[in-house]
Amino acid sequence: MTAQAFPLTWPDSWPRTTSPAKSQFKTSLTAAIDNVQGSLKRFSADSGKKVENVLVSSNVSLMERNPKDAGVAVYFTWDGISTCIAVDRYQRIEENLQAIHHVIEAERTKLRHGGLNLVRAAFRGYAALPPPNSGLSNPWEVLGVKEGATTSEIEAAFREKAKKAHPDHQSGSNEQMAKLNAARAELLRRKA
């Protein structure tokens, strides 16, 4: 999956909210964008690690500030970890952006009280999402199935490979698991 600013690129393994709610946030779109940018800058300064490759993905265009799908996904790299924080809980773009701002501020709180290792652990969890550019050239090869494999063959191959690729396994990692998740999602999307 390659993330793009428009239209919304939602992480494949992240379920969507079916009934967005009203929020208590009182902010404009411009203020919410500024808040996210400011939080990322402060988080970078607090951690001593660069936040790079920031990409905000949404369905906002110049002529439609409040699209039907108000989800927002913020992709970035921090401390070598490809990260995505995605929120579609609320009805308006600015509310979802403001929620992302608060998530980043919560990570700053973890940093102050729990230290860098606690935040790295949390970001590795975010990293389990497919990164913006997973380099997935051949999903059949990643899962070890033939082109045209059935849904059950895809699922079985995924489960088998996930046993060793999962970060909890001695030889596994977030990157391996993200690649498997992306391959599975792509092949199932092609089957649909």
Results as ranks from 00 to 15, higher is better:
13 S>Y: 11
160 E>I: 07
191 K>Q: 07
156 A>S: 06
67 P>N: 04
7 P>T: 15
80 G>I: 15
76 F>C: 00
56 V>T: 08
119 V>G: 02
136 L>P: 02
188 L>F: 01
52 E>M: 11
189 R>A: 10
58 S>R: 01
130 P>I: 05
155 E>W: 03
77 T>P: 09
1 M>D: 06
80 G>P: 07
45 A>H: 05
34 D>I: 06
106 A>W: 09
73 A>Y: 05
3 A>L: 03
90 Y>P: 10
11 P>C: 06
172 G>D: 05
133 N>L: 03
149 A>D: 10
171 S>P: 10
30 T>I: 15
91 Q>L: 13
142 V>S: 05
4 Q>I: 07
93 I>M: 03
95 E>K: 04
69 D>I: 00
75 Y>A: 00
61 S>Y: 04
126 Y>A: 08
140 W>C: 09
97 L>R: 03
12 D>Q: 15
5 A>V: 09
139 P>D: 04
92 R>G: 02
75 Y>S: 03
127 A>Q: 13
51 V>W: 10
148 G>V: 12
133 N>H: 11
14 W>T: 07
10 W>T: 09
183 A>M: 02
58 S>I: 13
111 L>M: 02
3 A>D: 01
42 R>A: 12
113 H>R: 03
152 S>L: 03
97 L>K: 07
142 V>F: 02
161 K>L: 10
14 W>C: 13
84 C>V: 14
180 L>A: 00
